[in-house]
């Protein structure tokens, strides 16, 4: 479990603030902009982004939570069904620009599933992607629009994001995976 810290709490805080500015800049404002966090750690990150945007733009963006469990392409390969966390989108996504928020971009399959899930709720005008860590190895034609930190990794490594609302502290560590199932452990 001895890991190498690649982002401290302070670096995470700064990355969130920078991404919040980038989102507003790219969209040229906040009209029609909504944030959707992917369960689980994407949700608190999306809330922080909304909070940062509220502070510097004085605009309250709607924030939703998206559970992608039923849209995964590896359901039949997992030994155990994942516990469903639930989706909560308290707004109509049709016509909005949705910024999907997740902690790590890895294979891209979570994002593919998230786009499918999101489309069930309506027809967004555009979908963008913000992640705290982009670790490479994307297996699908997907890229992030906003990245906290690019971290070149090998597939044997495990990127462990810890978020205070869930894990009690903010940190990103990189571990040499001992167990030979990085895909199952890290679902991104």
């Amino acid at each position: 479990m001895s890991g190498r810290r690649i982002m401290t709490a302070e670096e995470i805080r700064r990355a969130v603030i920078r991404i919040s500015h980038e989102i507003v800049e790219k969209h040229a404002g906040t009209d029609g902009l909504v944030l959707v966090g992917i369960q689980r750690r994407g949700v608190p990150i999306a809330r922080r982004l909304a909070e940062a945007i509220r502070e510097h733009e004085a605009a309250a963006l709607p924030v939703g939570a998206l559970d992608i469990t039923f849209y995964r392409d590896d359901l039949s390969m997992l030994a155990q069904q994942p516990v469903v966390k639930g989706t909560d989108l308290p707004f109509d996504v049709t016509g909005t620009t949705v910024v999907l928020v997740d902690d790590v971009l890895y294979t891209g399959r979570t994002i593919r599933a998230a786009m499918d899930a999101l489309m069930e709720y309506g027809r967004p005008r555009a979908i963008r992607l913000a992640v705290l860590v982009d670790r490479g190895h994307c297996e699908l034609p997907i890229r992030a629009d906003h990245v906290g930190k690019n971290v070149p990794t090998s597939r044997e490594e495990l990127v462990r994001v810890r978020i205070e609302e869930i894990d009690g502290e903010d940190a990103v560590d990189i571990d040499r995976a001992v167990a030979a199932e990085p895909v199952a452990a890290r679902t991104t």
Binding site: F70, L75, A79, Q80, Q81, P82, V84
Partner: peptide, 8 residues
């Protein structure tokens, strides 16, 4: 859904 995950 739950039973589908219980192969084996």
């Amino acid at each position: 859904y739950l039973l589908a995950g219980a192969r084996g």
